[in-house]
């Protein structure tokens, strides 16, 4: 397979994951704004999307409709839902020969209908609908990938893009809110303020799952444990790292080449299997997350070089 194709698949799925995550952040911000007027959730949503500086530079004060528009459809914002989706579709065109017709049609359909739907600013009353549509499209693309693609190197590169972006996203959500999870703010073991934990869990679509597992008791350590270490939670760091590990191992099996990225992922995996949430809190949550983000950043760069996405 061409290095460029591997890179195209990787970025196609990374962009798809990003657009879905951004949509989820908008959903969370919108929900909190509706239920908790006066909270400053939009600022932290922008920060999580790593779009706060770009927003301030272009629009100044944080204002709901502008933030939504910026995150949803602003072509000047490279991580807006529409920008990410366009990038995904652009990459899909580059790798047209590597993906199945089903996957291509799902992406192309989604692009055509989103482009139409997001041609003008979305009124607030339509927002839930539009966000639901984005979720459905993402699910459909994922479904066609699972249902139609050969389980070979091509599939592995798609999955690497998805889970690297996901790990990154979850770590950023936690890092933007890490202060509310700190023991100094809240006694270990006591209940968190509803808004804060709701935001975090909503951003990863994990409210119901968490409550089911913890009988509705939200503690800082419980939430951190759930998002970092729980192997059952499909957006936890542990889960994403396990997936990346397994796909990189598959590539090793297929190519019989061992690269720098293999060392990095093994190291990351060891940490997440051996460490406990208590140790993380002792070490410092922010420090832990900073290092984790640095590691995934390195991993991304290594994958790019090791598999010759570019020269």
């Amino acid at each position: 397979m061409l290095g460029k194709t591997a890179g195209g698949l990787f970025w196609m799925f990374r962009s798809l994951e990003r657009s879905e995550n951004t949509a989820r952040l908008i959903e969370t911000g919108f929900r909190i704004a509706l239920t908790r007027p006066g909270s400053e959730e939009w600022a932290s949503v922008l920060k999580t999307a790593a779009a706060d500086q770009a927003y301030t530079a272009n629009h100044g004060a944080v204002e709901q409709s502008r933030v939504i528009n910026f995150l949803l459809r602003d072509p000047g914002n490279p991580s807006s839902v529409m920008s990410s989706f366009s990038q995904a579709r652009q990459n899909a065109r580059i790798v047209r020969t590597a993906i199945t017709r089903e996957v291509w049609e799902a992406v192309n359909d989604a692009y055509v209908s989103l482009k139409d739907r997001l041609a003008r600013p979305v009124p607030e009353r339509d927002l839930p609908d539009v966000l639901a549509q984005i979720r459905q499209h993402s699910a459909l693309v994922r479904g066609t990938l699972h249902g139609s693609m050969l389980r070979n190197d091509m599939f592995d590169f798609c999955r690497l893009g998805t889970f690297l972006e996901r790990a990154d996203n979850t770590a950023r959500i936690l890092d933007v809110k890490y202060y509310v999870l700190l023991p100094s703010v809240m006694q270990v073991g006591s209940s968190l303020d509803n808004v804060q934990w709701e935001t975090i869990l909503r951003s990863v679509s994990g409210v119901r799952a968490y409550n089911r597992l913890n009988h509705g008791k939200a503690t800082p350590m419980g939430i951190a444990d759930f998002l970092i270490f729980d192997p059952r939670m499909p957006r936890s760091l542990r889960y994403s790292v396990t997936k990346i590990l397994s796909n990189l191992r598959m590539l090793h099996a297929e190519y019989s080449d061992w690269h720098a990225c293999h060392d990095t992922i093994e190291r990351l995996d060891r940490r997440l299997t051996r460490q406990t949430v208590e140790e993380v809190f002792e070490e410092g949550l922010h420090e832990f997350l900073t290092e984790f983000l640095a590691e995934t950043g390195r991993l991304g760069a290594e994958i790019e070089t090791d598999f010759k996405f570019t020269e």
Binding site: M1, L2, G3, K4, D153, Y255, F307, K308, E311
Partner: peptide, 11 residues
């Protein structure tokens, strides 16, 4: 090596 070659994931 005197030929035109394409960059693949394996060189």
């Amino acid at each position: 090596d005197g030929r035109i070659a394409m960059r693949t994931t394996r060189g």
